[in-house]
Structures are given as C-alpha cells and as structure tokens.
C-alpha cells in the first residue's frame, strides 16, 4: 500500500467507526461522543495554528465564543434559524481570528501568547458589559424553533449526532487535505524555520494570518455548533479555561497530527468523566496531565507513534 492509500484508509476507517458508534454505544456515551466531536473540531482548529504553524495562542476561547455568539445572537434577536445561524457563527470565528491576527501576528512567541490572552480577556469582559444584548454571565437558551434543520430537530439524539458527525467529518477531511496540500507544507515550514521560508520567498505574516483565520473558522464553527446542538450560549465559554482546553486536547493527542485533536478530546473527556467518579480533584488530574505531557510526551500520543512506527501518519 502506498502511504497515501494508508492515510486515507486510516482516516475513513476512523470516521466509519465513529459513525457506527452511535448505534453500538448506550445513549449516554453516544451524546458524549457528539459533544466530543464538536470539541474535536475546536481542537482541530487549534491544531492548525499551534500544531502545524507553531502559533501558541492562549486566546482561542475568543474565536469559539465569537462563533457561539455569532450563531446565538442572530437567533435571539433576529430569529434566524439553524443553517444560516451556523454559517454566521463560522464566519464570526474567522473574522475575529483575522482581526486579532492582523495585530497579534506582529509579535511572536511569548508576546503572541500574552497578546492573544489579553484580547480574549477583553472579549470576555465585553460579553459581560453588553449584558442586555448577550445575557451576560447567565447566558441564554437557544430557542428550540431555531434548532430545526432539514425537517429534523437538532435537539433529538440521532439528528444531533448526525449533525455533529457531518461537521466533524468535514473538518477532519478538510484538515487532512490542507496539511497534505502545498500550503500545508508552507505552514509547517513556518513552524520549523521562519527565516528560511522567508528567504524562499514566502511571506510569513500572510501565511500565518491565513492559518490563524482557518483556525478561527474551525473554532467559530465549533462554538456555533456547540450552542446550536446543546441549546445554550453563555459567557463562561469565553473564559481562559476554553483557551486551555483545546491546547490540552492537542498536546495529549499529538500536535501536528490530523487525528490527534480528536483522540485528545476523547481521552480527556473520559479521563475527567471517569476520575470524577472517584475524586473531587479532577482539576488536579487536568493539571497533572499538562505537566506530565510536556515533561514526558511532548509530542503527544500520535506524535510519539509517528516517531516510533507510523512515519506516514499526517
């Protein structure tokens, strides 16, 4: 088998397994899987910026929230419905990432992290400040009339899972295509050696900006879908915690691998869900996971696997 066949085979197999899971798993886990798929889309977006392009952002909650409110506010105030609202959320994420990127990408490394962190904090405070428009810290419920698509209610299990799966599959395949495309290789070149790429004639600012906007589109879509599928929009999704979560997923699964974000989200979700049966101290688990990962497995699970065995893994 060629590497290309292996790559597509593996990813299609994973997608088929995930789709089949809804019929095999008990309902509790099926709904969890729907949540995980949406969170994985968020993490895939984070991975495009961090894993492939080397942009360590601490502000992705802003893009996620932009998508969530970009979907939720038109639903609330203008009575938009599912598909247009989701598209609005997707675009809001991209526009926000573009706006932040134009400024933040003038910096790099530690400064980039802090600038993105500060923008996200300002975004969070703005949501609180515009209380009468956003519902502030309490947030609001997404009207069930808006949660209808193609004759199905997204508030019911099978359509919800299907919708989450469609977004997840589209995100995964687009990401796979992206990283195997010439532009994807330029992104990696930026991460590995910005100076050399510049001498080869690429404009680092432009490449990074495009990567960040793509990342923001993913995050925005995930935020919009999370609000739409689970029926709630709130400012807590704009807190710094939601910038750290995708980073954690990506680090665990493997930065710079296509399947890593999904694997990381899946494992982390169940790590918390299961440890919470035994201890209140699940925050400690999250913290220990972060420290343990950077210390002992900085490449994450799939990154290590790629290093040791499957060199063809994208």
């Amino acid at each position: 088998m060629t590497d290309g066949a292996k790559v597509w085979g593996l990813h299609l197999l994973v997608l088929a397994a995930v789709f089949a899971a809804q019929f095999l798993l008990p309902p509790y886990h099926a709904t969890n899987l729907a949540r995980i798929m949406v969170l994985a889309v968020f993490a895939m977006g984070y991975n495009i910026a961090f894993g492939y392009t080397g942009l360590l952002s601490l502000g992705h909650a802003l893009f996620f929230a932009a998508g969530m409110y970009g979907m939720g506010l038109p639903v609330w105030h203008l009575e938009w419905v599912s598909v247009p609202a989701l598209i609005a959320g997707l675009l809001a994420g991209g526009v926000m990432a573009g706006a932040v990127g134009v400024l933040a990408l003038r910096t790099a490394g530690v400064s980039f992290m802090i600038v993105t962190l500060m923008f996200a904090q300002a975004g969070y405070l703005t949501l609180l400040y515009l209380n009468s428009w956003t519902g502030g810290d309490e947030g609001f419920v997404v009207a069930s009339a808006a949660r209808q698509a193609f004759g199905f209610s997204l508030a019911t299990d099978t359509p919800r899972f299907t919708a989450a799966f469609v977004l997840f599959a589209a995100g995964l395949l687009a990401c796979l295509w992206l990283v195997r495309s010439p532009f994807g290789r330029v992104m990696v070149a930026m991460r590995e050696n910005e100076e050399r790429s510049r001498m080869l004639g690429y404009d680092p600012f432009r490449v990074k900006l495009v990567a960040l906007i793509l990342s923001g589109l993913y995050a925005g879509l995930a935020g919009a879908a999370y609000g739409m599928l689970f029926g709630y929009v709130g400012a807590s999704f704009a807190t710094i915690q939601y910038s750290i979560l995708p980073m954690l997923y990506v680090l665990l699964g493997g930065a710079g691998t296509v399947l890593g974000p999904f694997l990381g989200a899946l494992l982390m979700f169940y790590l918390i869900d299961i440890t919470s049966n035994y201890t209140d101290a699940y925050l400690f688990v999250v913290g220990a996971a972060l420290v343990g990962l950077v210390l002992f497995a900085p490449k994450g699970i799939l990154g290590t696997l790629r290093e040791r065995a499957w060199r063809w893994l994208p």
């Binding site: 601490l58 925050l283 420290v291």
Partner: peptide, 22 residues
C-alpha cells in the same frame, strides 16, 4: 523552553488550585 514552561505552569496552576480547595 518558553512555550513548554507556559504549558507546565498552567498545569501547576490547576494542581495548586485543587490542592488549596481540597
């Protein structure tokens, strides 16, 4: 490494917070 230490200190943040809560 600047980026790895940020991630590690975020982890430390959660661990210390949880320890204080417990």
């Amino acid at each position: 490494d600047p980026e790895a230490t940020i991630v590690a200190t975020i982890g430390l943040l959660y661990m210390l917070q949880q320890a204080a809560l417990t």
